[in-house]
Design a protein around this nucleic acid. Structure first.
Lengths: 235, 235
DNA sequence: CGATGCATTGATATCGGTCAAAGATGGTGG
DNA sequence: CCACCATCTTTGACCGATATCAATGCATCG
């Protein structure tokens, strides 16, 4: 069976300025987790779990993109998170999953039963520490993403979102100017707290200014990186 | 020396519908953490640590309220989080603290050196699991709080914020209709991504409608709970 | 008892929501 | 292979809510 992918996390002891380096689990640790995990394929729009269901498993993404949505009383579905390769989700949601999670692209997952995971983590402190570090990192990222939502201008929000995607993809080694945008405009809009019209208009502004070029709906090329970074940073 | 307070966390195995119950560390676990912690008092507006500093300690709040702020290039300071009694912060920020943290009220903290904490956590899997659970819970809360920011109307945001405060205080056992509002209007505004004028106007609307009564600047009484909950829920 | 920061109130302009319609895109089946 | 349909996306016009600017009111602390 394949080994699970390294979690996207940072070294707990790493004190360097650019601490985005990833930590691999040791081969032994990976085997440990792999032993209790099963590989699952989910196709686009497939539901991994629903809000309110009994939580029995956590998941690590091998490939693909997941969104977490929150159903509101008004009937709207808000996108509250996107998760990418090597992200961990569904962990210890306190008995019940809180969000519904849906595949945005075809996805390969490692499904890890929570009780077995708990067992393994309690037996291997160092492995558990990896998970603790990972979750801590996620929490920090989550705070950072709030900055997105504090911005009021649509252009800024969209630019910042694209920048986050770029960062995410840079971590994966894709350092090109081409940013893959695997999710739909309406998913982006929902995530950013905008309407999809506003997202559309914002991208139009950015292309009109020559900052972006949009070859197709699922990708964006940064044409004028200076201005792009300027717009991203200008809060 | 005093024992550290119980962390505000949830039982990992708790599958009940209302899973907001708190878990206490065992006396042995508390002693373990206490042994490496020092009590620190910080007065209002005191800085606990600054963004960019080498991270050497995590903190558990015994009493008082902390805000985490993010300094922006534009010179603005955004409030990205509030933390309350029994919250844990500054954990494993990857060598450098990312936010500056400031006391909103007089605060008592337990300061825990990270290297000693790491040692203790690695030695005691069950204690570490408490921390893991705590952080997971925080992460979930963080997602929930994003809902705040997706709301566009100022009245809704403010009502929702007050509701969060009430929930927080209910966990502490304060089940009165009186909500303590320890932070300033401008801190609230910053946290909500609004101007303080907008916050002011929003509270005025709520008092005009008889939903709230504001005895003084640092507290709010919910007069019409039905309508209040209605406004909070209406996203 | 000023003085300084905090909070409220008011007037105007701007930006995104809303409603409406037309334009792409991709998948399916004939 | 093409046509068609459903879905996603873009564009436009108008309106409303909040930012912005400005001034006044109110505490809290020396």
């Amino acid at each position: 069976m394949d080994l699970i992918p390294p979690l996207r996390m940072v070294r707990a002891k790493d004190v360097g300025p650019d601490a985005a380096s990833t930590t691999l689990l040791t081969p032994a640790q990976r085997r440990r987790v792999t032993a209790i995990a099963t590989r699952v394929e989910v196709r686009t729009r497939g539901v991994i779990f629903r809000s309110g269901e009994a939580a029995d498993s956590a998941f690590i993404i091998d490939a693909g993109v997941i969104k977490a949505v929150q159903d509101l009383a008004s009937g709207k579905r808000l996108v509250v998170a996107f998760w990418f390769a090597r992200d961990l989700f569904g962990l210890a949601e306190n008995g019940r999953y809180v969000n519904t999670t849906v595949a945005v692209t075809p996805v390969t997952l490692y499904k890890i039963p929570l009780d077995a995971l708990r067992q393994v983590l309690l037996e291997d402190s160092y492995l558990q520490f990896q998970f603790l570090t990972k979750i801590t990192y996620e929490l920090k990222e989550s705070l950072r993403r709030k900055l997105l939502l504090v911005r009021r201008d649509a252009v800024g929000r969209v630019a910042m979102f694209l920048s986050l995607l770029a960062r995410q993809q840079a971590e994966e080694g894709d350092r090109a100017n081409e940013i893959a945008v695997p999710m739909s405009r309406s998913d982006i809009a929902s995530y950013l707290g905008l309407t999809l019209e506003a997202v559309s208009r914002a991208t139009r502004v950015l292309t009109d200014q020559g900052v972006l070029v949009i070859p197709d709906r699922r990708s964006v090329r940064v044409q004028d990186r200076r201005r792009f970074e300027q717009i991203v940073a200008k809060i």
